[in-house]
Design a protein around this nucleic acid. Structure first.
Length: 424
DNA sequence: TGGAATGATTACCA
DNA sequence: TGGTAATCATTCCA
């Protein structure tokens, strides 16, 4: 204890070190130090020449030295005061904001934390944001939940694996250090520090796992939210209804809001889908009229037949009043909703017969005009003709000059009526 | 399986 | 705000 105290105070080294005297590097003892180091190296080298029994015996002798525990404690203290205190100061890091973000997200998405229906709230929110139509909503919802639950399961399995591996490795290292602490100065604090290092390493692996999980959730979410990914073609009937409207209003294929709503209802799609459809149709038709010629002819013929039969029915039912239907009153009605086509499709009341006939005439005019223009018969004269001048595609290749859809003046107006759009 | 068709989205414009 | 034009992403079909 005396020797130990002296050594602590920086005085004489204990006798245990007599064979390994360390001289202060003041330059004066350079030769002696070299000699000492040479001796030490020599001793180390001779260890390899020793037999195992001999080495064990020496080891045992060292371990059993009376001063060993005391010196060990001193070395541990010195080590703690120097190396550990320096490192300890550096180790106090603030919580990683990235990790916090990941944890928060996993919690919010229902991946980590207690299972409450596998993030159904998140799925519901996503569904609401997507604004999907109710029918297959629940199916997609459950699909989303199933996939989220799968991710959750994988996440927890992996997390468990990492924790298990971390514990195993920590135990292994601790045992190793404890074993080594018999031959070199390793304090419990150092072991603790080592455990901390291991945990940090494993938590960085965990962070990667959390990151990957977050990415998987984001992909799942985006797939669920992205309407383009779950696009379905409209059914044939819906397409026919939309096409019929388009080709029968070829001069001005801009349905009013009311017409869009009506079309949406009939086609079982949303108003914005109707808008999208007309937007796409207009641009695609304009870009390649030739391609749509056949389709246009077909709908023109169909509309003509429908109009003819409606007209025949109308004249049979109330022949006296029919002639007036194409007159100014009917024209006015049509001008109010150029899209009386809808009425023709949906209403069969006698009181609407007049309007129906008017609308059908309008349709026939539009569709036949298209057929004629496609055939090239009047293409030149159309430009000059006020009567047949199309309200449709202008020289610049667009309907842009056509007036607001619902307020468009009826083309059945007298030849004298000239509109800015017809001049195009 | 590649290309056409098609519904949705986006940027930009008036 | 509603339209055009370009583009994306998916579906359909030979």
């Amino acid at each position: 204890e005396e020797e130990r105290s002296e050594f602590r105070r920086g005085k004489n080294p204990p006798s245990f070190f007599t064979n390994f005297t360390l001289h202060m590097p003041d330059g004066t003892e350079g030769e002696g130090r070299k000699q000492d180091i040479g001796d030490i190296l020599q001793q180390i080298m001779t260890i390899t020449d020793q037999s195992l029994d001999e080495a064990q015996a020496r080891k045992h002798a060292l371990n059993c030295h009376r001063m060993k525990p005391a010196l060990f404690n001193v070395l541990c203290e010195i080590k703690e005061k120097t190396v550990l205190s320096i490192r300890g100061a550096q180790e106090e890091e603030p919580p990683d904001p990235q990790l916090m973000r990941l944890d928060n997200m996993l919690l919010a998405e229902g991946v980590s934390g207690p299972e409450k229906g596998g993030g159904s709230a998140a799925a519901a929110a996503a569904a609401a944001a997507a604004g999907g139509a109710g029918a297959d909503n629940s199916a997609e919802h459950s699909d989303y939940r199933a996939k989220l639950s799968q991710i959750r399961q994988i996440y927890h399995t992996e997390l468990e694996k990492y924790e298990q591996a971390c514990n195993e490795f920590t135990t292994h290292v601790m045992n190793l250090l404890r074993e080594q602490s018999r031959t070199r100065p390793i304090s419990p604090k150092e072991i603790e520090r080592m455990v901390g290092i291991i945990h940090r390493k494993f938590s960085s692996i965990q962070m990667q796992l959390k990151q990957s999980t977050c990415e998987a959730v984001m992909i799942l979410r985006s797939r669920f939210l992205d309407a383009r990914r779950k696009r379905r073609n409209f059914n044939k009937q819906a397409t026919e209804i939309l096409n019929e409207y388009f080709y029968s209003h070829l001069s001005n294929p801009y349905p009013s809001e009311e017409a869009k709503e009506e079309l949406a209802k009939k086609c079982s799609i949303t108003v914005s889908q109707v808008s999208n459809w007309f937007g796409n149709k207009r641009i695609r038709y304009k870009k390649n009229i030739g391609k749509f010629q056949e389709e246009a002819n077909m709908y023109a013929a169909r509309t003509a037949v429908t109009a003819a039969s409606a007209s025949a029915q109308g004249s049979q039912a109330n022949s006296p009043s029919t002639p007036n239907s194409a007159g100014s009153a009917a024209s006015f009605n049509m001008s109010n909703s150029g899209d009386l086509f809808m009425s023709v499709q949906s209403l069969n009341g006698d009181s609407y017969q007049g309007a129906q006939v008017g609308a059908n005439i309008q349709s026939q005019v539009d569709t036949l005009r298209h057929v004629i223009s496609q055939a090239g018969g009047y293409s030149d004269s159309l430009a000059a003709s006020q009567i047949y001048s199309p309200q449709g595609i202008n020289a610049n290749g667009g309907w842009q000059d056509a007036p607001t859809p619902s307020s468009v003046t009826s083309p059945t107006e007298g030849p004298g009526s000239v509109h800015s759009d017809t001049s195009n």
